[in-house]
């Protein structure tokens, strides 16, 4: 059973923030190791150092920028990323136990589409706009497989309530009999947080794309929102496929945290091992391979449930 807690509203952003900082630190450590930096451990602090730098950096202006929408983009991304986790249970507590929790999660991460596109549009810069449109194209590639995968997990439990999905995995975790759905879910989490190898919207070939002109606090809020979105996606993998808080010895809230950390670390590690996948190639593999595969998985699950 999942009970809702009011004080969770205060705790949730803190937990998400800590995970986001941890993920960024792990990412920076991996980068430093590849570059052969003498002390990769001190590289773990690099994200915090650059965050401090961004806090005092003066904002860069561009000609005829759409300032309101541009500044709003980062806030929208961060708030949507936090709200997405509203329905994710930590052990037996969740901030909100909505009857259509899976739909809520999906709706919040789609808000990110608007946020990223606005960040690209607002700067009135060619590279920013190219980055923004790349993300919209990426959305076309990952969103359908992503939704089919969410549907598959809901089908397995016969409910859109996240608590019911966790309860349905008491005997057998969904990852065991829905491995395709789980794999595609992880891929789509990387894509929705435009993390590597799906970072074409912010890649270096367009000088940072959406991020090209973002500076100071605006940049900090946007980048933080991106990491929190990755955390929210990784955290949702636990109730959807990994049995929620179930596990031996440890209390269930701790199991949830451990599983989330493992999924997150795997995502960050895997994302660095592959070159950036350009939109036209992603589109191809998404429509030719991922969509049929997820549909077959959904069909298989429906037959088993019947």
């Amino acid at each position: 059973m999942v009970e809702t807690t009011a004080w969770g509203v205060l705790l949730l952003p803190v937990i998400l923030g800590l995970f986001a900082v941890g993920a960024a630190a792990f990412d920076a450590t991996l980068a430093a190791r590849a570059a052969g930096v003498a002390a990769p451990r001190s590289a773990a602090l690099a994200p915090l150092r650059s965050a401090a730098g961004l806090l005092v950096q003066q904002r860069r202006r561009t000609l005829a920028a759409d300032t309101l929408l541009w500044r709003a983009a980062g806030m929208v991304l961060l708030v949507a990323a936090v709200l997405a986790s509203l329905v994710t249970p930590l052990g037996q507590w969740a901030v909100g136990d909505l009857s259509a929790g899976v739909v809520w999660f999906n709706a919040m991460e789609i808000v990110a589409w608007a946020a990223v596109w606005l960040a690209g549009w607002g700067a009135n810069s060619a590279f920013g706009l190219v980055g923004g449109y790349r993300f919209v194209a990426q959305g076309l590639a990952y969103e359908l497989p992503h939704m089919f995968v969410l549907t598959t997990a809901a089908l397995g439990a016969g409910s859109l309530r996240v608590a019911d999905i966790v309860a349905a995995q008491q005997d057998l975790w969904f990852v065991v009999w829905m491995p395709v759905a789980f794999a595609v879910y992880l891929l789509s989490v990387l894509a929705m947080a435009f993390a590597g190898p799906f970072n074409h919207a912010v890649s270096s070939d367009v000088a940072g794309g959406v991020l090209a002109e973002l500076s100071g606090v605006d940049r900090l809020v946007f980048v933080a929102g991106r990491w929190v979105l990755l955390v929210s996606g990784a955290a949702m993998a636990v109730p959807l496929f990994l049995g929620g808080g179930s596990g031996p010895l440890l209390p269930d809230w701790l199991w949830t945290l451990v599983k989330t950390a493992l999924v997150l670390a795997a995502l960050v590690w895997a994302g660095r091992r592959v070159p950036t996948i350009r939109m036209e190639r992603f589109e191809e593999i998404s429509w030719m391979v991922l969509i049929p595969a997820t549909l077959l998985q959904a069909l298989f699950v429906s037959l088993v449930v019947i």
Binding site: L30, A31, A34, G196, H200, S203, S204, D205, P275, T276
Partner: peptide, 14 residues
């Protein structure tokens, strides 16, 4: 690096 494989590029630079 342009292809977006930062780690392999970093090794080559080193």
């Amino acid at each position: 690096a342009i292809a977006g494989w930062a780690d392999a590029a970093a090794v080559a630079r080193r």
